[in-house]
């Protein structure tokens, strides 16, 4: 298998500088959106919006800054396994708190 291969060059090409700036800009815009939205009272939707935006931001960081997009697919599976564990724990825990 991969035992002895000398990958002095990582197998994939990292994206150039431009895409990083683009993502950075998007992240700033999204931050602006959450802060603005937080000022408006959406009731329960406020939290939902804030979390959705946070998820989008994380997705951008994970895929571009952290190179998940170009990594071996097994990395993506790993991330999903970890997230799955966390989310399932949270959901199951809430069966004790919110469905009484």
């Amino acid at each position: 298998m991969t035992q002895d291969h000398h990958n002095h060059e990582t197998q994939h090409n990292h994206p150039g500088y431009g895409i990083y700036f683009l993502v950075w800009f998007a992240l700033l815009v999204l931050t602006g959106i959450t802060v603005t939205v937080a000022g408006i009272d959406f009731g329960n939707l406020t939290v939902a919006t804030a979390l959705t935006v946070a998820c989008i931001k994380s997705y951008l960081v994970l895929t571009i800054f952290m190179h998940l997009k170009v990594e071996n697919p097994v990395f993506k599976v790993f991330v999903w396994v970890a997230l799955f564990f966390l989310i399932v724990s949270l959901v199951l825990l809430f069966t004790d708190y919110s469905f009484i």
């Binding site: 937080a38 946070a54 931001k57």
Partner: peptide
């Protein structure tokens, strides 16, 4: 360096969630 970068981005991601949960729920 890549590994250090990954660590740094994770610190960033955690802040991305901390920020709205503590500062934006007024």
């Amino acid at each position: 360096l890549e590994a250090a970068g990954l660590y740094w981005h994770l610190v960033d991601i955690i802040w991305i969630f901390l920020f709205p949960l503590f500062y934006l729920i007024t």
